[in-house]
């Protein structure tokens, strides 16, 4: 607007800037604090935001290296953080690939084919995705206990179980991909089918190459969601070297064994990559979250 603004607007703008900066300072305080704490020596040290005598002790431990302090005492890393991170990534990558493959094919059927019960299935998927799996943990536990008696790599305390269990949450992704498919003109596929392509070929060679952006979004979304999954992994996984990061990280802050500094370094080390991925992809993720989930 090229209008002349009243004097009061200037102050309002200034006030808004100041207000937002103050708010951001409060919001960022915990995050900056953790970074600062990860460089302090000892687990109970206090001090200012910029550590006076920075130490890399917690970072050594977070990377799984024993640390020898100035007093000559060697500390062993308390928990295998890198192993947990690796477990998390392994589980998340495999589940995201499976989720992507299965929800893309289903979304294709929902977007392009006519069949009995389509509307009912789509609607009930929306309803069932609101039921949190934490409420049926007893049943899931019993289910994997039973399966594990016969198929050992899918039983309790295996990554297979966590991966397979994540396949229950595909409804959101199916809706997201279906929404994208709906927005692509179907005449190209129809032309291909007229030329003798099968339905599968029309899907594989025409629709899929056009949908790469949404597939990337869904992959990242599924990846982040599985990395952050806590309740199911906390019940299904037991051994320390099997845990995912989300389940293992809390062990730093037990009342009896309070490792605040070590936690800070591990948190920054493991949280940073996920945060950066999220920030980098935020434009697409936000679009997927707001448009795909509930399209009104």
């Amino acid at each position: 607007m090229a209008m002349v603004q009243p004097q009061s607007t200037k102050y309002r703008v200034l006030a808004s800037h100041l207000g937002m900066l103050a708010f951001i300072a409060i919001v960022l305080f915990p995050l900056l604090m953790v970074i600062s704490i990860s460089f302090r020596s000892g687990n109970f040290a206090s001090g200012s935001l910029l550590p006076q005598n920075p130490s890399l002790e917690h970072w050594y431990l977070a990377f799984g290296l024993p640390y020898t302090g100035e007093d000559g005492v060697t500390t062993q890393p308390p928990f295998p953080v890198l192993l947990w991170l690796w477990n998390s990534i392994k589980v998340a990558v495999v589940s995201s690939v499976l989720i992507l493959a299965l929800s893309t094919t289903s979304a294709y059927a929902f977007a392009r084919m006519r069949f009995a019960g389509k509307g009912a299935v789509l609607k009930s998927m929306l309803i069932f995705q609101m039921f949190p799996p934490v409420l049926s943990l007893v049943a899931l536990y019993a289910l994997f206990d039973q399966i594990g008696n016969h198929v050992s790599w899918l039983g309790l305390n295996t990554h297979g179980a966590v991966i397979v269990a994540s396949l229950g949450g595909m409804a959101l992704h199916i809706w997201t991909i279906k929404g994208y498919f709906d927005s692509i003109d179907r005449s190209l596929e129809e032309a291909a089918i007229v030329d003798g392509a099968t339905t599968w070929q029309a899907f594989r060679y025409i629709l899929l190459p056009l949908s790469v952006p949404i597939l990337v979004v869904v992959f990242i979304l599924a990846f982040i969601m599985t990395i952050m999954e806590y309740p199911m992994a906390s019940v299904l996984l037991v051994d320390t070297d099997k845990l995912t990061l989300a389940v293992g990280a809390q062990q730093y802050l037990y009342e009896q064994n309070y490792l605040w500094g070590d936690f800070a370094a591990a948190a920054v080390l493991s949280g940073l990559p996920i945060t950066l991925i999220f920030l980098y992809c935020q434009k697409w993720i936000v679009g997927g979250l707001t448009a795909g989930g509930v399209k009104g």
């Binding site: 937002m20 708010f23 951001i24 919001v27 960022l28 915990p30 995050l31 604090m33 953790v34 982040i224 990395i227 952050m228 806590y230 990061l245 989300a246 990280a249 809390q250 730093y252 802050l253 936690f263 800070a264 948190a267 493991s270 949280g271 996920i274 945060t275 999220f278 920030l279 935020q282």
Partner: peptide, 15 residues
């Protein structure tokens, strides 16, 4: 402003 959303919740809650 969206930074709190980008940090994994299980880490920020423990923080």
């Amino acid at each position: 402003l969206i930074l709190p959303y980008a940090v994994p919740a299980f880490i920020s809650i423990l923080v």
